[in-house]
Amino acid sequence: QALNGISFNKGCYMGQETIARMKYRGGNKRALYILSGHTELTLSLDAGLEIAMEDGFRRGGQIIEWVQRGNQVLLTAVLANDTPNDAQLRVADDASSSLTIQPLPYSLAEA
């Protein structure tokens, strides 16, 4: 949607009703983000992400894929689409880890 890969005006294509419902009813609450940082854990698809809240950390997203070299990581993850760019993120079960959201090559703001 952010790259204009979906048409909301074109008629009759596979999945049109589902896509239109998601847009006009506000059903899409998640987006793909790029994160970088460090962790002492060896990542796996089971590894979760946590986001800092006022009262501690809570579950914050799902890792899609990653590259890890030593303790440095670069990954893509699905997070809530209203996640602030300066959010404090970490790998679950690694309190010493730290992840930073990298700028996206497109905007998630509605046109």
Results as ranks from 00 to 15, higher is better:
1 Q>L: 14
2 A>H: 02
2 A>G: 14
3 L>T: 15
4 N>G: 09
4 N>I: 02
5 G>I: 10
6 I>L: 15
8 F>L: 15
9 N>Q: 12
10 K>C: 03
12 C>A: 07
12 C>L: 05
13 Y>I: 07
13 Y>S: 05
14 M>L: 14
15 G>I: 10
15 G>L: 11
16 Q>R: 08
17 E>A: 14
18 T>C: 06
19 I>L: 13
21 R>T: 14
23 K>C: 05
23 K>T: 08
23 K>R: 13
23 K>M: 13
23 K>P: 03
24 Y>R: 11
24 Y>N: 13
25 R>A: 11
25 R>Y: 15
27 G>K: 10
27 G>A: 12
28 N>E: 09
28 N>S: 10
29 K>I: 11
32 L>H: 03
33 Y>T: 04
34 I>C: 05
34 I>E: 07
35 L>G: 03
36 S>I: 00
37 G>R: 04
39 T>P: 01
42 T>M: 07
42 T>E: 11
42 T>A: 11
42 T>Y: 04
43 L>P: 00
43 L>K: 03
47 A>Q: 08
47 A>M: 04
48 G>T: 09
48 G>P: 05
48 G>V: 03
49 L>F: 11
50 E>S: 03
51 I>M: 09
51 I>G: 02
52 A>L: 15
53 M>N: 10
55 D>K: 13
55 D>W: 11
55 D>T: 14
55 D>Y: 14
56 G>F: 09
56 G>N: 10
57 F>K: 00
57 F>Y: 13
58 R>G: 02
58 R>F: 09
60 G>N: 04
60 G>K: 03
60 G>H: 05
61 G>D: 07
61 G>Y: 06
61 G>T: 06
62 Q>N: 15
62 Q>E: 14
64 I>L: 10
64 I>Q: 13
65 E>H: 11
67 V>P: 00
68 Q>N: 10
68 Q>D: 10
69 R>W: 03
69 R>Y: 06
69 R>E: 14
70 G>V: 11
71 N>T: 12
72 Q>K: 14
72 Q>D: 15
73 V>T: 02
74 L>D: 11
74 L>H: 12
75 L>D: 00
75 L>I: 06
76 T>V: 02
76 T>A: 01
76 T>N: 07
77 A>C: 07
77 A>I: 03
78 V>I: 13
79 L>K: 01
80 A>E: 06
81 N>Y: 01
81 N>H: 08
82 D>W: 04
82 D>H: 08
83 T>G: 05
83 T>R: 05
85 N>H: 04
86 D>Y: 02
86 D>C: 01
86 D>H: 05
88 Q>Y: 07
88 Q>F: 08
89 L>S: 01
92 A>P: 01
94 D>Y: 02
95 A>F: 07
95 A>E: 12
96 S>R: 14
98 S>T: 03
99 L>C: 03
100 T>L: 07
100 T>H: 08
100 T>D: 07
101 I>W: 04
101 I>C: 09
102 Q>W: 01
102 Q>N: 09
102 Q>G: 00
103 P>C: 09
104 L>S: 06
104 L>M: 10
104 L>Y: 05
105 P>K: 11
107 S>L: 04
107 S>D: 15
108 L>F: 03
110 E>V: 06
110 E>G: 00
111 A>F: 11
